[in-house]
Design a protein around this nucleic acid. Structure first.
Lengths: 210, 210
DNA sequence: TAGATTGTTAATCGATTAACAATC
DNA sequence: TAGATTGTTAATCGATTAACAATC
């Protein structure tokens, strides 16, 4: 479905298109022009049309874009209809928040298992999923066809955990640690979220602005 | 200290330089060349030199860069010596994780107060900070010179919360909600973290990779 | 000094914006 | 039909990379 060389810049904008289109749809808005969509996206109409035309001609000349249709198209481009099986490793406050509050079924995933190495929380539940001991990680992933992992563990635990996941066939990572997965596993698909980096850039902007 | 027109691309790389330089320093490494630093950063030596030269000539010809010195310089550029007073609003699992685990004092901030609207948790503590009722938010911010807010609240609560913070003089936001702060407050400084967007792009990459 | 490596200018590449013919 | 708005090509802008003189 997707054309080959879509730039990372375009991809990063797709979830925002999807979010705004979902909101417009909820408001009962049927159609939108590239100009209006650009205003919401803080972009130019040109960029909106260029972005969308990477994937196909979703608009109608003289009319604009159908909101429900365009939303659906972007949903398909992102692949949100998938239910990629994923495990979450590290059920501290952060991992628990992720496990409990993310609507994985709307984001292309199914959270299949939660793991922690702390015996005090192993056996308790988050949203009907029992927290399992990490010693079960490999067998669980192999048995259940797990393809992705959400790493909510301390950095020190990351090298070993990633190795074990990778050896169990898990090659896609949502990585909240500072461990550089791709250095050792170049074919892994990794989405890094470095919260402290973001806070540092906020700090930088505050210095400069005022 | 900082030159004027530093591009957003460069700024986003600074925290990574800082992190890697901190690691190198911990390993007792004294100096590094742009080429070696580029390898760690997954960049070119050219880019490293261009980036660093936005702020000054930190290197020495024929030698390279002093690791502790360069780390210190980047720390100053980012302004991490600051202790910007901040409040965290929303002490659910996610807010609690942020409040408990982020090393704010290394990131330019001091977490001065935590707020929630849930009476069941108001009065309990996170890291020696009591969770206060959001009704105290404005008076606390004004009284304590709070300049930044970390928004860990549901989207629905965001418009009102931001309004009240803004009216109390808080104009810098670390925003985990999908509420678009800058639409209504163009002079606010905002760092958005949209976790679900990141998960969607991981989904996209998984479709394409295999 | 010779070798190494920076700082900086110039060349390239890619992404964004502008323009306009196509067409609903 | 006339007006609106897309799809797409061309122009511009900015970021990355290459090259090399300066210099430690």
């Amino acid at each position: 479905m997707n054309k080959d060389n879509i730039s990372k810049s375009v991809i990063r904008r797709l979830p925002r298109y999807y979010r705004f289109l979902s909101e417009l749809e909820e408001q009962g808005i049927e159609k939108i022009s590239s100009e209006k969509l650009a205003r919401i996206m803080r972009a130019t109409a040109s960029q909106v049309r260029q972005d969308l035309n990477c994937f196909g001609g979703f608009g109608h000349q003289g009319y604009g874009y159908s909101v429900p249709n365009l939303k659906e198209e972007i949903m398909n481009i992102l692949g949100l209809h998938n239910r990629y099986k994923a495990v979450l490793v590290g059920a501290g406050h952060f991992g628990t928040a992720i496990a409990a509050h993310m609507k994985f079924e709307n984001l292309g995933f199914e959270l299949a298992g939660i793991f922690d190495n702390n015996d005090r929380i192993v056996g308790s539940y988050i949203n009907n999923l029992i927290i399992q001991n990490v010693s079960e990680l490999e067998s669980f992933c192999k048995k259940n066809g797990v393809v992705a992992a959400f790493l909510c563990i301390p950095r020190g635990a990351a090298p070993d955990t990633v190795q074990r996941l990778y050896d169990s066939g898990v090659k896609n990572f949502w990585n909240f640690t500072h461990f550089d997965i791709q250095e050792k596993y170049p074919d892994a698909v990794v989405e890094n979220v470095h919260l402290s980096d973001k806070l540092m850039t906020l700090c930088y902007s505050m210095n400069c602005g005022g």
